[in-house]
């Protein structure tokens, strides 16, 4: 590399360049992470997120946080370890929500006319903020995994209930009881997703009555802890700065 004289660049121009780089990188990193994360999320928990008649008390609550703590954990590792920025979770989750909302509005609604109250994206921001702040406060990936991961799973359902509750009102429809969400699923014809394909709670002899959600959320939180561990290692691996000679 060339030897550098202190006078090659002025301090002011470096500061300005650094700031320009900040904005550019924020934008393209946001877009690249959004692409990767959105593909991952839509193909591991997407159907629950696409349709309200999938947003149930058992699998939606369990699967969504588990699948969505992945990229936050990996990017948190890089942003915190290399930059001391406690942003990885919120940054990636906002990317995911950006990708999802643009799609739901311009494609699910704008191209194929499913109404937004049927195809809205669940929010994950509360869990992301908690993950970031716990990392900032504890400065420990271990504590973030255990407390943050658990919280990420636990807060998902209450964070979304403000939007979902109204769609779980009971309705008598042609002699059967259905939620409004069920009626939406019946109403807005989907040729590719017949009713039987839904993975939703159908009840077992073992469920604790109305306590289904806390059990699901707690289980989700537990798995989130483990996934956080694994994915924070992904963050380490993907942060490699190796150069190789052969490929």
């Amino acid at each position: 590399m060339s030897s550098l004289s202190p006078t090659v660049f002025t301090k002011a121009e470096i500061i300005q360049a650094s700031r320009t780089a900040d904005w550019l990188i924020l934008v393209f990193a946001f877009l690249v992470f959004t692409g990767g994360f959105h593909v991952h999320a839509m193909l591991t928990m997407g159907d629950w997120d696409f349709w309200t008649d999938w947003k149930d008390r058992r699998l939606w609550v369990t699967v969504t946080p588990i699948m969505c703590i992945t990229f936050p954990a990996a990017v948190q590792y890089w942003m915190w370890d290399k930059l001391r920025l406690p942003l990885g979770a919120t940054f990636t989750i906002l990317g995911l929500l950006f990708g999802e909302w643009v799609n739901r509005y311009f494609n699910f609604w704008g191209w194929t006319y499913f109404p937004i109250n049927f195809v809205w994206a669940a929010t994950l921001v509360p869990g992301a903020i908690i993950l970031d702040v716990i990392l900032l406060w504890s400065k420990s990936f271990l504590i973030t995994a255990v407390i943050g991961g658990l919280a990420f799973g636990l807060i998902f359902y209450p964070g979304n209930w403000s939007m979902l509750a109204v769609l779980h009102q009971p309705v008598e429809y042609n002699g059967m009881v259905m939620t409004i969400a069920d009626i939406q699923g019946y109403h807005y014809v989907r040729t590719g997703t017949p009713e039987y394909i839904r993975f939703v709670e159908k009840g077992t002899l073992r469920t604790f009555g109305k306590d289904v959600v806390p059990v699901s959320a707690f289980f989700s939180g537990f798995i989130c802890i483990l996934i956080y561990f694994i994915w924070h290692f992904f963050g380490r691996w993907y942060s490699t700065t190796r150069f190789i000679d052969q490929y």
Binding site: D53, K55, D56, R57, W161, S162, M163, L164, A165, V166, H168, Q169, P170, M176, V177, M178, T179, A181, D182, R198, V200, E201, K202, V212
Partner: peptide
């Protein structure tokens, strides 16, 4: 959510 919709039921399946 709860106070606006005190009675809710799970998805029917």
């Amino acid at each position: 959510g709860n106070s606006a919709n005190p009675i809710t039921i799970p998805l029917q399946a």
